[in-house]
Amino acid sequence: MTKPPVLILGGRSDMGLAIARRFAAAGHPIQLAARGAQGLEADRADIALRHGVAATLHEYDALKDAPDAWIDALPNLPGVVVCAIGYMGDQPTSEVDQVQAAIVLRSNFEAPALILAAFANRFVARGSGALVGISSVAGDRGRGSNYVYGSAKAGFTAFLSGLRNRLSGTPVQVLTVKPGFVATRMTEGMKLSPALTAQPAAVAAAIEKAVRRKRDVIYVKPVWALVMLIITHLPEAVFKRTRL
């Protein structure tokens, strides 16, 4: 049986590429979508050669392309869409620069939500498909150190939850992924606890498995579920004085 194509939105990111490789290893054709997609030719060739699957590149600008028109221009509708779009920005800059803050909010909430919603409608019409949104533990509670990014991820998490609720009873899966810290370009140079930090390949493996098993919400490292349980249950009077 041929496996359905997997589309990676944000295919340039370390996580996006790791997810592409993992699904390719499982035999899925791969569509990589990113800005300046032609720059990913070496990665495309690698995926195709290593795993003997078809791999294609698709130019995609999450903040500019209109979702419906962009999807209609794809050569074929994928079976699985993984949204690995994200932009953390610099929190102090986002506090004073509304243009940057808007880009952070739009990149982490508006754009991912709108494109997955557009895919959702097509998947429901077709009667199959999986929608994977990579959100963040930063969205579980707003913190002073990154709440612009965190609040956008909170919005995205809520959107995925609502979409999953709406689509329950249809064959379409909606998976929310909260990876915790991941060793990628975005976190390079940060001091991260090794016990809380996952490798991109581990995130990818967890996602591929969660899609197969039709899961709803996953933390990649289980310890994060506990950490966030504690953080979300701290009384606000206490939480507001923390520096996390």
Partner: peptide
């Protein structure tokens, strides 16, 4: 820098990083 770039089955030649 670990991408495989091309394979020529005639020569058995693999180009890679």
């Amino acid at each position: 820098l670990n991408r495989m770039l091309a394979f020529d089955p005639e020569a058995g030649q693999l180009t890679a990083e």
